[in-house]
């Protein structure tokens, strides 16, 4: 207990380089409040194109809250208030003329628990495309569904039963279905909120491979509890602690040579 006050004092400026060249998304001085309580303090972070940024940290550190700011999912929580400068391609996400519906089509999200709609596999993937009118003909829609399932690495497993319910798949398949559903709308950024935490190691490995492949086309931000996962899939890692971004840097460097005491404690398993 004695060392705790020191840690709190140590929470201040972020250690490491928050900037990248030519970022896809950038956040500056982000503050998030739930009513009176501040959940995120002054977080600034860039997300580079075609790279994976892992957000790690102990439970309740605000990494999921921060992730949900990036496509304004926090709008659905009435008491949640977001301040700061959040940009997607130099467009202010929280500007008055930014439509959250359009934003979410551009910044897709995959959730912790696989949440396919209680519809067929086909309809699950086609839903977003139909919603946004992306396909003019049935053939185009078929094409979107098939290519999305292929990119999500699920097509071979489900090609014979596209009309059977998506909820009948296994957990790992469901999560890949959700990823297919997300990429069917051709987003620019994909946010993943602990996408493998409800899955077994084999399904997790498949998802991780998939993330690595998706990187070639999308900008990805992933929240994870597993440090091994962060080390495996990400290029940059950001360590959050008590609503603050403590340290950010190249993943290799964070895991081999952390600069901040808190980061070191966390990745060496001393807490969290």
């Amino acid at each position: 207990m004695a060392e705790k006050p020191d840690m709190h004092q140590a929470l201040g400026e972020t250690v490491g380089d928050i900037f990248v060249d030519n970022p896809k998304m950038s956040t500056r001085n982000t503050n998030v409040f739930y009513g009176e309580k501040q959940a995120i303090h002054n977080v600034s972070l860039d997300f580079g194109k075609n790279s994976v940024v892992a957000l790690i940290g102990p439970s309740g550190c605000g990494k999921s809250t921060f992730l949900r700011c990036l496509n304004r999912m926090n709008d659905t929580i009435p008491i949640c208030r977001v301040e700061g400068d959040l940009k997607l391609d130099d467009e202010d996400i929280y500007a008055k003329d930014m439509d959250p519906v359009l934003l979410r089509a551009r910044v897709g999200m995959v959730f912790q628990k696989p949440n396919p709609f209680p519809k067929s596999i086909y309809d699950n993937v086609a839903y977003g495309a139909r919603l946004h009118g992306l396909a003019r003909t049935r053939a185009e829609l078929d094409e979107i569904v098939v290519s999305s399932l292929q990119r999500a690495g699920l097509f071979e497993e489900v090609k014979d039963r596209l009309q059977s319910p998506g909820t009948g798949l296994s957990g790992g398949q469901q999560q890949r279905l959700c990823i297919a559903r997300t990429i069917a709308v051709s987003p620019e950024v994909i946010l993943m909120d602990e996408p493998a935490s409800a899955l077994d190691p084999i399904a997790t490995a498949i998802i991780e491979e998939l993330i690595d492949e998706l990187r070639s086309k999308y900008t990805i931000a992933i929240v994870t509890h597993s440090m091994q996962q962060a080390a495996r899939v990400s290029q940059r890692t950001a360590y959050f602690h008590m609503g603050r971004l403590v340290e950010v840097g190249e993943t290799n460097q964070i895991f081999t040579n952390p600069q901040h005491e808190l980061t070191e404690n966390y990745i060496t398993g001393r807490f969290g």
Partner: peptide
């Protein structure tokens, strides 16, 4: 109706009303 269904619909860019009438109300 589980909130995850609402999040799923909002996450792919459904508007609030589409989420409610295409997913929540049917369920």
């Amino acid at each position: 109706v589980p909130p995850s269904i609402r999040e799923a619909a909002l996450g792919v860019g459904a508007s609030k009303m589409q989420t409610v009438f295409q997913h929540v109300v049917p369920l």
